[in-house]
């Protein structure tokens, strides 16, 4: 009898799950539509879109091979063949900017996703076990990592692991996960008091299922907003680490490496600094506007305004 009811409820839950899943695509569409409605959100969205297109389709979009050297035409100004000119090895700057966009988006997206997954996992675990030893341990862990100045921690990790794309992603994710963790923990504390969680507990649902099905989906909105804002920060840091020579390795095209080369040749070719700076500036503004739109779109209080 008892198992019957539970099975029934489980079946019921499954069907709501299905509808939830179908609704997710709707939610995405509605959210994007309201992002676009926010002042500036449209432009942010457009430029974020352009960056994604550049990142995914770099090999089809860029006018030439980013690593093809043309020593005779080094330090060339803008021309029809090289829209933005060439660098100290005669490589096409525009192509390198486009390929650099791929690196920036890859690193930022990877780091942000990784840190959000780890952070949310730990945060939910801590919040769900509020007041227990594991919770204190998790808080302690968050506070330790937050105690380091972020960029210094990141460069120390890269220094230990050696500069490479994956290691940069890992280092950046390691410095950022406590922020997601604290956010997730705070949200979990409020969500876990909700009736549907209490009901699920009363029905004897396993804790892992409660966490996965009932808590996690309900704390994702602020995390997603945070993801959007962090993309911009991570792009800066990828460039920064690469600028220091502690990011991705040359000859890979990265905005930071381009700036590093520009710094070396600052007396010869000012354009080598200018173009990657413009790329970074556009990326920053685009992601800030987009994430601001996202914040307003996902916040029911803001949407009413």
């Amino acid at each position: 009898m008892k198992t019957d009811t539970i099975n029934q409820t489980k079946a019921g839950m499954k069907s709501t799950q299905l509808t939830l899943k179908r609704k997710w695509s709707d939610t995405l569409r509605v959210t994007l539509r309201s992002v676009v409605k926010v002042k500036g959100g449209l432009w942010g969205g457009i430029f974020v879109g352009i960056m994604l297109v550049c990142a995914i389709g770099a090999q089809w979009i860029s006018p030439s091979d980013p690593n093809a050297q043309d020593i005779v035409h080094r330090f060339a100004g803008p021309s029809l063949k090289h829209f933005l000119g060439t660098d100290y090895l005669g490589r096409d700057i525009l192509s390198r900017i486009i390929y650099g966009c791929r690196i920036a988006v890859m690193v930022a997206f990877g780091a942000v996703t990784l840190s959000a997954i780890v952070g949310v996992f730990l945060g939910v675990m801590g919040g769900y076990n509020e007041g227990k030893k594991i919770d204190y341990f998790i808080i302690w862990l968050f506070d330790i990592v937050r105690s380091f100045p972020q960029i210094i921690l990141a460069l120390a990790i890269v220094a230990v692991l050696g500069p490479s794309l994956l290691n940069v992603v890992f280092a950046l994710a390691f410095t950022a996960f406590p922020f997601y963790g604290r956010l997730a923990r705070a949200k979990t504390l409020s969500v876990k008091e909700a009736d549907y969680v209490k009901a699920a507990e009363a029905m004897g649902l396993k804790r892992i299922k409660i966490i996965l099905r009932h808590i996690t989906p309900n704390i994702l909105a602020p995390v997603i907003v945070c993801l959007g804002m962090d993309m911009a920060t991570m792009i800066i840091w990828e460039s920064g680490l690469s600028f220091l020579g502690l990011g991705v390795r040359p000859p890979t095209a990265s905005w930071g490496i381009m700036l590093r080369n520009g710094y070396k040749y600052i007396l010869t070719s000012p354009l080598m600094i200018l173009w990657p700076s413009v790329a970074i500036a556009v990326a920053m503004v685009a992601f800030s506007l987009f994430s601001e739109g996202l914040r307003v779109a996902l916040d029911p209080k803001e949407r009413e305004r």
Partner: peptide, 23 residues
């Protein structure tokens, strides 16, 4: 605030150097 968002400190440093030390 737009400048603050768009120009991270190391980019600002490079551009300032370019402008006030080189040009």
């Amino acid at each position: 605030s737009l400048l603050g968002v768009a120009v991270p400190d190391f980019v600002a440093a490079l551009l300032l150097m370019l402008l006030f030390c080189v040009q």
